Amino acid sequence: MQGMDWSDLQVFLAIARAGQMGRAGAALGVDPTTTSRRLRRLEAALGETLFEQTREGQVLTEAGERLLAKVEAMAQAATAIREGGPASASGLLSGTLRISASEGFGSWFLAAHVPDFVRAHPALTLDLVANSGFLSLSKREADIAVMLSRPKAGPVIARKLSDYSLRLYAGQAYLDHAGAPHSPADLLKGHSLVGYIPDLLYAPELRYLDELQTGLAPALRSSSINAQHHLIAAGAGIGVLPCFMGDADPALVPVLPERRITRSFWLVTHKDTHQLARVRAGRDWILGVVQRHRGQLLPE
C-alpha cells in the first residue's frame, strides 16, 4: 500500500460497498467524475483492474476482492483508533453477501434465522439463493455455498457443516385412505410415492428411495422439495423429506420412523474471498445457527 493515497482507497471501499459509482460518490460527497478518476488512479498505481462494469454497476474482480480484504482491515483499524477501542467488524459491514443453499435448507432452516443476522448487520444486503441447484463459487456467482457434497475441484475452501436426517412422511388423510406401510417392502404394494424427477436431479445425493427399498419409483415427481412437501401434506402420497422440514409440519406423520437416511451439508467459500469481513460474518452466522439448532437437523 506504500505510495497510495488513502483517499483513493476510501473511494475504492465506497464503490465496493455501494456497487455503483454514482452511489459511492453520493456517499462520499463527491461527483461521479471525481470518483471514477480516483479509481483509475488507484488501478494505475496497482497495475490491476479492480472492478468489472456490468449493467447493474461495478463488480469486484479477483484483484479487487483481494484488495478489499486489506482495505476493510485498514478501515476497521482506523475506526478503532478514532473511537479508542477495538474495531467492530459488524458495524462496518456493507455491500452484498450472496449465499447459495439447497432449496430445503435455505428456505426452511436458514431463512428462519435471517432476522438475527440482518439486525446485527443492518447496512449489509443479503441475497439468500435457495433453489434447485447451486450457484458457482468458482465463477464468483456467490460468496458462500451450503452444498450437499464437498467440491472435488476449484479454488474453494470446504468444511463439513453437519449431517442431517431424512425419513418418510405422509398426510393423515392419505394414511386413512391407503393404510400405513409396516415395512419398506409394503411401499411396493399400491402406495403412491412422491419424489424427484430422475433426469432433473441436480445432485446424486438426492437419490433416496433405493436406500429404503430396491425398486421404489415415485409416481408424483417434482424438481422442487417444497413442491414435494406440499404434495405430501395435501395427501397425494408418501415421500422422503429432511426431518427439519417434515417434523416442523404438524400436518405430516412420520412413516416407518425407524428408517432414516443420512446426508451431509458442506460449507464452501472461495479462496480469494473467504477472509472478507462480510464473508467471515456470514460463515460464522451459519456455523452458529447450525450449532445451536443441530437437533432439528439430527433429531433424536
Score class of each variant (00 low, 15 high):
91 G>Q: 07
91 G>Y: 01
93 L>E: 00
93 L>N: 06
94 S>D: 06
95 G>N: 03
95 G>C: 01
96 T>M: 02
97 L>W: 09
97 L>S: 01
97 L>Q: 10
98 R>N: 03
99 I>M: 10
99 I>K: 13
100 S>V: 04
100 S>L: 06
101 A>R: 01
101 A>H: 08
101 A>T: 15
101 A>Q: 12
102 S>I: 10
106 G>I: 10
107 S>C: 06
107 S>N: 15
108 W>M: 08
108 W>T: 09
108 W>S: 14
109 F>N: 01
110 L>S: 10
110 L>Q: 06
111 A>E: 11
111 A>C: 08
112 A>S: 09
113 H>Y: 14
114 V>G: 03
114 V>W: 03
114 V>Y: 09
115 P>C: 01
117 F>A: 06
118 V>M: 12
118 V>Y: 05
119 R>G: 07
119 R>M: 11
120 A>G: 10
121 H>L: 08
121 H>F: 11
121 H>I: 02
121 H>Y: 12
121 H>M: 02
122 P>E: 05
125 T>L: 09
125 T>A: 13
126 L>D: 09
127 D>G: 02
127 D>F: 13
128 L>S: 12
129 V>P: 07
129 V>R: 10
131 N>E: 13
131 N>S: 15
131 N>I: 04
135 L>Y: 11
136 S>V: 07
136 S>G: 03
136 S>M: 05
137 L>W: 05
139 K>W: 01
139 K>E: 14
140 R>F: 08
141 E>H: 15
142 A>R: 09
142 A>V: 08
143 D>C: 07
143 D>K: 04
144 I>V: 15
145 A>R: 09
146 V>D: 13
146 V>A: 12
147 M>H: 09
149 S>C: 04
149 S>G: 12
152 K>N: 04
152 K>R: 12
154 G>D: 05
154 G>M: 09
